[in-house]
Simulated assay, not measured.
Amino acid sequence: MNLGLKNKVAFVSGSSKGMGKAAAMIFAEEGARVVITGRGKEAVNKTVEEIMMSTGNTEIIGIAGDLTSKEGVQSAIRQVVDKWGTVDIAISNVYGPQAEGFETVSESEWYEAYQQQVMHVVYLTSEVIPYMKKNRWGRLININSISAKEPHRELPLVTANVVRPAVAGLQKSLAFELAPYGITVNTVLPGSIETERIKEYARSRAKIKGVSSEEVQIGSWAKIPMNRVGTPREFSSVVVFLASEPAAYVTGVSIQVDGGRVRSLF
């Protein structure tokens, strides 16, 4: 299948590692012009070199900065537009809130969680939609979490359980507004994907339960019908398909990639 991504400009936030990196790799394989972003310049540069070497695609640039701030997003998009003149695809992907229960969360941490998850999408969308509207084509995809459909119970992730559904609501609203311009807006919800983040969660749960992280991981797998965690590439393949030309009639949806873990019908 021709995904129609050759020479499309794909901005992938949080792509120096994990699921974002896997998505960037696939975009590069498909011939897109890819923007690697992350907080650490060294990690970003390393990922750019790795993807170039692996794919033979030299149309890759790296931008280091804080994409949870308005200034950080504006600066990053300005650099992309200076380089390639537009942004066709924007993937929102930032680190999630820390594990905490309601009684231990400070007021500032509530604001921080909202800033990380919701305002990042607001800032990025605001910067890229003028170019997408002009082109009458665009893809906005948010990497969220299955907690947007089914709140976490294993860990006290109260801030995540609150702000994750807010992002899904924002994306649904944007889908209504932007559909007439040929812009699709979708959310992809990872379940247990083999990243450093999930290992961190396993360590946190192990500490709470007083067991080893290996025991926690085995217990988690039992809740997944496929009885294993997913790979970053398996997850990111769905992200890249939603960014493709064949997915032009898919918008306003939240798709979980979780091995069947979420029990809801929709």
Rank of each mutant, 00 (worst) to 15 (best):
S244E: 08
I255D: 01
I129V: 15
P151W: 11
K209V: 05
A23E: 13
T37H: 10
A22H: 10
N7M: 05
V216Q: 09
Y123N: 11
S236I: 03
L189N: 07
F235Y: 14
F27E: 10
I208C: 06
A99L: 01
K207A: 15
P246T: 05
E100T: 00
P130R: 02
A206H: 11
G38N: 11
M132H: 04
D258W: 04
N227P: 03
T187Q: 08
W137M: 07
V216S: 10
K199I: 08
V9M: 05
A99V: 15
I91M: 07
F266T: 14
L3F: 04
N227C: 05
P225S: 07
P190L: 11
E107C: 06
L67I: 14
E71C: 06
L124N: 14
Q171S: 14
K17I: 00
I193T: 13
G62L: 04
Q115D: 15
V94G: 01
G210K: 09
A243H: 04
N45F: 04
T47M: 12
P225N: 06
V81S: 07
A179P: 00
P190G: 09
S54K: 15
G252V: 11
K199S: 13
K83F: 13
V257A: 06
A32S: 15
Y111I: 12
V81P: 00
T55I: 13
V9K: 01
A175R: 00
I193P: 12
Q171I: 14
G18S: 07
Q98C: 00
N57K: 04
E71W: 02
R197E: 13
P165T: 08
T187E: 15
V48G: 05
M132G: 01
R39M: 12
S254P: 08
G169Q: 11
F102W: 07
